[in-house]
Amino acid sequence: MNKEDRRKQILDAAMTVFTEKGFNGSTTLEIAKAANIAEVTLFRYFSSKQEIFLEGIKPILFSTLEETINASKELNAEEKLEYILYERISLISNNYKTVKLILTEAPLLEELGSENFMSKILQILESMLTQIGVSINDKGFILRILMGSILSFLYMPEMDEENIKNYVSKVVSIILKETNK
């Protein structure tokens, strides 16, 4: 197994252990066992349990959002909002256990010196709203609609693609109606 595949194997196993036991309830030995490797091998790839945790959550928090926004660059405002909201809701619905873990461990993230992840997500979304021409007066309202909509799927995950599309269409309609007043 090459180095990148081994790192992914460890991260996948770690996220499973973390979602089951939480960060503080997990040990590097448990992570190593879940990855079917020796604990010493785990430390060849990661310096600490904290590093593993932070590396495991980054893709869900930031990378996928930035990738989604980049992938929607050529779309008009309505299509862009629909695309981003759909992708976020699908991601949360498919990874709700991990996202709940991240929210539960938010104080730990700040303690570890990680930047405030919620502020960064809001900053990315606010930048996207600027790109599609949403006025400064409407940004706070629209950010609340977007974040509330996205986070509601933590507690009511939806796997039916059609239901997600219908929901997204209604939310985008509300947002566009508000911004076109």
Rank of each mutant, 00 (worst) to 15 (best):
F43G: 04
E66I: 13
K120H: 07
E66V: 13
K120C: 02
M118I: 15
R6P: 03
E51T: 10
L129A: 02
I121W: 00
F23E: 01
T104C: 11
I124V: 12
E4C: 11
R7A: 11
L103I: 12
S72P: 00
I174N: 12
T41K: 10
L129P: 01
P59W: 05
I57E: 03
I60Q: 09
I69G: 04
S114R: 14
T130V: 14
F153D: 04
K8V: 08
E74K: 13
E110K: 12
R44Y: 15
N36L: 02
V99M: 06
R44K: 15
M128F: 11
A32N: 13
L11S: 09
L151W: 04
S90N: 12
I121A: 03
V172H: 04
R44T: 15
E82M: 14
G133E: 03
F117R: 11
L125A: 04
L143Y: 04
N163Q: 11
M1S: 05
V40I: 13
L81S: 02
A14N: 09
G148T: 06
L112D: 01
I31A: 05
L125P: 00
Y86G: 02
E111I: 06
E162M: 09
I52L: 08
I102F: 01
E55S: 12
Q131C: 15
I84R: 05
K97Y: 11
Y86F: 10
N2Q: 06
I164Y: 01
M118G: 13
Y167C: 06
S169F: 09
V172C: 08
L129G: 00
V99I: 09
K120G: 01
M15V: 00
L143Q: 06
S127H: 13
N94H: 14
T68N: 13
K165S: 02
Y45W: 10
V172D: 02
L103Y: 12
N95H: 14
M159G: 12
E55G: 07
G148A: 07
G148M: 06
N24S: 15
A106H: 14
T68Y: 11
I174P: 09
L11F: 10
K58P: 03
G56F: 02
I124M: 10
D12Q: 14
S149V: 05
S72Y: 03
S169M: 10
S90W: 06
S152L: 10
E126Q: 07
I92P: 00
E20H: 06
L85Q: 01
L176Y: 04
E87R: 12
V40G: 15
Y167M: 05
P157K: 09
S90E: 07
A106Q: 12
K97W: 10
P107S: 08
S63K: 15
K49H: 06
I132V: 03
I174S: 14
A32F: 13
K58G: 04
A32H: 12
I150H: 00
I102M: 05
K139I: 02
E66L: 13
D5G: 13
K49D: 00
Y96G: 06
A34W: 03
L176P: 03
A77D: 08
V171A: 08
V134Q: 00
L85I: 05
L146T: 08
S48F: 09
L81N: 03
E111C: 07
G25Q: 11
L112F: 10
E78Q: 14
L61Y: 00
L109Q: 06
S114F: 14
N166D: 14
F53H: 04
Y96M: 07
I31G: 01
E110P: 03
V17R: 02
G56D: 01
F153I: 09
